[in-house]
Every structure is written in C-alpha cells, then in structure tokens.
C-alpha cells in the first residue's frame, strides 16, 4: 500500500490550524524529451532539494548551481519534510548518489558528470518554481551541455 502523501499532508496541516489546503500541482499533459544519444555519450547532472548553504535564510533561497568538486560532506536536510521517525540522512549517498555516478563514468555507462549539480528550493509558491528556479536550472544545464538531469527530491 502506497502512502497517500497528499491526503496526509492536508490532514496534518489542518490539524495545525491552517484553513486553506495546499494545492499540489496537477497536469494532464506531460512534456517528454527522448534520449537522443546513448547514455555512454551523455553528460549527467543531479538536482537536489538538500541544502548546500544553510546559512542563507530559508525564505530567500533560490535555485543555485554548485561545482561537484565542492560537494559538502553533508548537506543540511533539517528543514526538509522527510520521515525523521523512521530514518536518517547521515548517508549522503541515500539522496545524492554522486559517487555511484562517478563509478558509472569510470565504467563507461554514462559519458561524464557535469561540472555542476543544482539546488532547487522546496517552494510553497509554484510560481517561483516555474518562473524562477526551473528556468535558472535550465540555463545552467545548457551552459554545462547537460543531456540528462536526475532529480532526487528528499
């Protein structure tokens, strides 16, 4: 049985006294970019919701790229909504599998890791995600000549 996160979130915030339910994005048509070349020739990046710069106040965080070479040993996940009763995020690989991707590059499974990975904030405002964060990540990915983005929200 899959967890019904939309219902659970709605009930949880109602119990906190919020009168207006969050409206999750809903789309019937879905864009699709087929892979145009073999994975072994593709430049790959990661997009994460884990926080690289926790010193920035949460309300002012925006999408940002960081060099894979500067990946922190541990991201800040404390403000994100994950199951803190059942599990933990002390293993970076459980949500940011950079080492596995590097091994796949060495094995020739994928072509290369891009220069940068990307942070996308978990935003209440869908307009901010659609009109600001997502276009910023697109722009940065194009600069890095990315073919494939692997998005791993916590």
């Amino acid at each position: 049985m899959k967890i019904q996160y939309i219902k659970r979130t709605r009930d949880y915030y109602r119990a906190q006294g919020f009168e207006q339910d969050y409206t999750w994005a809903e789309n019937t048509a879905t864009p699709f970019q087929p892979l145009l070349k073999p994975l072994a020739d593709c430049v790959v990046t990661l997009v994460t919701t884990a926080v690289t710069e926790p010193e920035l106040p949460k309300p002012s965080r925006t999408a940002k790229r960081y060099r894979f070479d500067d990946t922190p040993a541990a991201f800040d996940t404390s403000e994100l909504s994950w199951d803190k009763t059942t599990t933990h995020t002390r293993d970076r690989g459980s949500y940011f599998p950079m080492e596995i991707l590097k091994d796949m590059v060495d094995q020739g499974t994928i072509g290369a890791l891009a220069d940068h990975y990307h942070f996308v904030p978990t935003e209440y405002s869908q307009a901010n995600t659609l009109n600001k964060d997502a276009p910023a990540i697109v722009k940065a990915c194009i600069q890095d000549e990315v073919d494939v983005a692997i998005l791993i929200p916590l």
Binding site: K2, I3, Q4, Y5, I6, W24, A25, E26, N27, T28, A29, T30, P31, F32, Q33, P34, L35, L36, V47, V120, T129, L130, D133, A134, P135, I137, V138, C141, I142, V146, D147, V148, A149, I150, L151, I152, P153
Partner: peptide, 26 residues
C-alpha cells in the same frame, strides 16, 4: 523542474518516494 527541463530539450528522471504527488504533477 523536470517538466521545464524536458521542455527545453533535457531528458530527466525523478527518483522519488511520493507516488501520488509525482503522478499528479505529470
């Protein structure tokens, strides 16, 4: 974000555990 990337020619995959949210979003 994945949808916007696809619209701009970049193939994506989301690895996630919230089926209902990902399905609803398209």
């Amino acid at each position: 974000t994945a949808r916007t990337l696809e619209q701009n020619g970049i193939s994506t995959i989301v690895i996630g555990s919230a089926w209902d949210i990902l399905e609803r979003c398209g």
